[in-house]
Write a protein that binds this DNA or RNA. Sequence first.
DNA 1: GTATTAAATGTAACCGTTTACATGAAAAAC
DNA 2: GTTTTTCATGTAAACGGTTACATTTAATAC
Lengths: 329, 329
Amino acid sequence: MATIKDVARLAGVSVATVSRVINKTDFVNPETAGQVLKAIEQLQYEPNAVARGLAGKKMGIIALILPDILNPFFPALARGVEDVAHKKGLTVILGNSDDLGLKESSYIKVLKKKYVDGFIIASNTIREEDVEALRKERIPIVLLDRGLNTASCAVIRSNNREGAKIGVQHLIEQGCQRIAHIYGPQEFITARERLLGYEEIAKGLSGYSPSLMVSGNFDIEGGRKAVEQLLTRHPDVDGIFAGNDLMGVGALKALHERGIRVPEEVKVCGFDGIGLTEITEPELTTVAQPIYEMGKLAARILLDEIESGIRENSIIELDVTLIPRKSTQ
Amino acid sequence: MATIKDVARLAGVSVATVSRVINKTDFVNPETAGQVLKAIEQLQYEPNAVARGLAGKKMGIIALILPDILNPFFPALARGVEDVAHKKGLTVILGNSDDLGLKESSYIKVLKKKYVDGFIIASNTIREEDVEALRKERIPIVLLDRGLNTASCAVIRSNNREGAKIGVQHLIEQGCQRIAHIYGPQEFITARERLLGYEEIAKGLSGYSPSLMVSGNFDIEGGRKAVEQLLTRHPDVDGIFAGNDLMGVGALKALHERGIRVPEEVKVCGFDGIGLTEITEPELTTVAQPIYEMGKLAARILLDEIESGIRENSIIELDVTLIPRKSTQ
DNA sequence: GTATTAAATGTAACCGTTTACATGAAAAAC
DNA sequence: GTTTTTCATGTAAACGGTTACATTTAATAC
């Protein structure tokens, strides 16, 4: 592969001039520039990204660290990030943290050494110190789904509490009186917020009882078990608001196993809006986050910060939308 | 951040010696090495990966290019690749090609400039020339699901034809007589092989007819439409072998809409073994590929080639396994 | 007509490693 | 007691760019 020196030689100029032409970083006599461009064309020259990276401390790579790409929530996010990055000529490094602080830190450490331009981290467990360390080194970072106590960097999330209220409200409108909630791990702010949203509305119902809230671990199996537990406590539930779609699916499964008809006897609403909700039987009503858009937005904000160098601290809360389907009609 | 020069200074040796200690690339007096190690520790020194990359033409990054991470087949693959890479201290760059040759080439071009150590490409459309170009520059590459005509690099895939035979055989064993096949785009070798496998077995059935084969585009909607078409042609089908799980899901949906009971009236079998198959109602019998394992294997082979420098040309065909579920019992 | 400024380009240091080659000291060979 | 090896380390040239600063020439000011 040709190097900048080859181009300089062929064009009869110095490497500095070639660099100037390539990067449009300084004025170059149009005639000279023409020579350089011709040489570049002739040699099929392409600047080496690593050399550039070494000189400029930026490799044109953004790091996307998320809990687990196998969790159906994250592919859409990743795709959103990648689409924006790709359009701007950047590439994306993907890391699965399994929500393990240690793994996260290790990714950050390794990737800093690779001069990634910035980080997008979807994490419920990231430590404050990690964010601070990045901030100190002026490495841009955008967080997804992280608590607002930390406004030391841009945070993108959806309006979880409002979403929960919308979901519960919908169940009420569909005629439910005894509405249960399956909540996710309370370390996760998203799970906490949704629980609060549920409580806020459900508390006002005549059939309300705190024991209508059961824990479900954010996965299918958790949702199933939660419903089994719930049914022994409250055989008379007529609505279930699941803290995410996976638990919603689990709920549907458990109900189906027990021969309880959805939506006739019990209505179920999920949260997230992942693709799965369209293939259950019945299809699952859900409070949908704009997942793909969140990924795109995160990438855009990060790229802005990378380009401008000015730190973005805002917390952006995106609206969710109810998608009514068979499971509640 | 401390550099190798700082370490050299503090330890009172040359940078070459430090480099030797770090990389164990040459003998160093244990006492000197001790000094160096102490200095490294004291300065919290970590070698800069980009400088290393520039010097060694390897960034410790592997590129994973796949059609679309949103397609539920691929997250498991990506996770397999990433897990192996991470264990060896490498990172993974993810690219979505949308099965567009142009996008693929563009990724390859960009990533070569970033000195990625190697490529894993899951593609049905990759061009021979792209592979050759990489081979020529001695950049390791592993292909997933690509035709055997090209044995100029390692290829990993599962035994699609055999899998199809197993699936159809299973339907027969469950008592089906008129078994239809929904096939994927015939540009894809996987789709062709599965079709061939189906034909091989189905041809022998008394109720066989070529019009039992309908095209379905490898997605849910395609599967649904295919079944609608199929039912007008052959209202008496009693078994459907879908070329992949997504079309299998579509088939279930179409049948459900028409009030045709699965498995009582029609049995359905999919192919791939993605997670979706466990949440349909009824759960979908499928011929499962070891997706996660394929990802791991691809990464392992690639890493071997990267380390050893010796070119791997084998075609590895992995076994598939039938997972019998409600949709065929 | 000299001083000042602007325009265009070159020189060389720097980014942080690796590594071929050179060097010097000590050990082995004769 | 030289000569040859071996061992341990240093020197400096890559790797392939960017960029601060210097330099040269032409244009403008006075």
